[in-house]
Design a protein around this nucleic acid. Structure first.
Lengths: 194, 194
DNA sequence: GTCTATATTTTGATAGAC
DNA sequence: GTCTATCAAAATATAGAC
């Protein structure tokens, strides 16, 4: 569910916070909850982090980084735009499988970010979404997928990918290959020009 | 966004709480927030409701009731199972359009229910989902849609419908008829036997 | 039906001993 | 690095005057 290293206490705080924030929400999780799950006292947490908000920021910026890095790799490639779209779907799938709890924070808990943390997060998210939109539009302009309203196609695909984690929870027994084929067919099947 | 009557103060509390719970989450919304949005003091709220948790319970049981009532109407009809599936999609769409904020609570905030409230809510939700699953299975057995894993098809359809409200937010300009056709094609297009 | 005043808990966070 | 002790603020909720 979550591959974050357990080596340091700080990493352990992040891992447990991810689980708790998903289960009880950011505002519904107390420092007491986090410390209790680690077997220490709340005050001890502050030797590793400066505030509860800082935990949320680090988790979400880490998550956003996974998407931005994957996007940059795909953009730098020589693939066709349609192939890039397929890679983006595979990217979402891989990140979701490796960080299911974190995806819940990306889908729901980001709204509890404050100030600069929120601004920085939204900057990364907007950059990613814009890159995604451009690839979709280019694939359309190149005649690789059917001509249609870019915004509708874009949000339809992204919404499904965004909430896929809640679906994956119940089907983590399926193989990665099957899931990838299923998602590609679901999201691009009606779009591709055969 | 929310058609709840404003006639009584109690109804006004429900309406404002729905908006705030969606925007700031249940645990992130204080009685102060609700009272402040109404222009009264927090203590005054308790003349109309008994607790913050009671607000959440009433909102979610009302929401669950919309689905259960719609399901009962559809089940009582003489439609084919495939037609019933199409009616269920239209039901979700109509409830989402009329109660967009409430759908966010159904998708996310239900986890903050406690005790009997949680048990009663889950009972209604499970009953609805079971009825939905049975109709899907019957449509498959009757040869109206392609044979496939019922659970995968079921969760795939329900997940999309569940998160549709976050998509609808950005496309509330589209006509109901277009949205219904789009959703039916998206969810049943690959399934229907032509 | 709303208010002020208040009780009680819990919250995030800090100081300082060990 | 963890603890105890503590703080200040905010939370839900109640009592009782008006």
């Amino acid at each position: 569910m979550n591959n974050q290293a357990l080596s340091s206490k700080k990493a352990q705080i992040f891992q447990i916070s991810t689980q708790l924030f998903r289960k009880k929400s950011y505002t519904g999780t107390s420092m007491q909850d986090i410390a209790g799950a680690m077997g220490i006292k709340p005050a001890s947490l502050y030797n590793h982090i400066n505030s509860k908000q800082e935990i949320l920021i680090e988790l979400l910026l880490h998550g956003a980084g996974l998407f931005v890095d994957g996007m940059n790799e795909i953009r730098a490639s020589q693939l066709t735009d349609l192939q890039k779209l397929e890679r983006l779907i595979a990217l979402h799938l891989r990140i979701t499988v490796d960080n299911t709890d974190l995806m819940a924070l990306i889908a729901v808990e980001w709204r509890h970010l404050e100030g600069d943390g929120m601004r920085e997060y939204l900057k990364l998210r907007n950059a990613y979404e814009n890159d995604f939109r451009i690839i979709l539009k280019d694939a359309m302009d190149a005649g690789q997928i059917h001509q249609m309203d870019v915004e509708i196609a874009f949000f339809s695909i992204l919404t499904t990918l965004k909430w896929f984690y809640s679906w994956y929870d119940k089907h983590s027994n399926l193989s990665l290959i099957d899931l990838e084929e299923y998602l590609k067919k679901l999201l691009l099947g009606g779009l591709k020009i055969s």
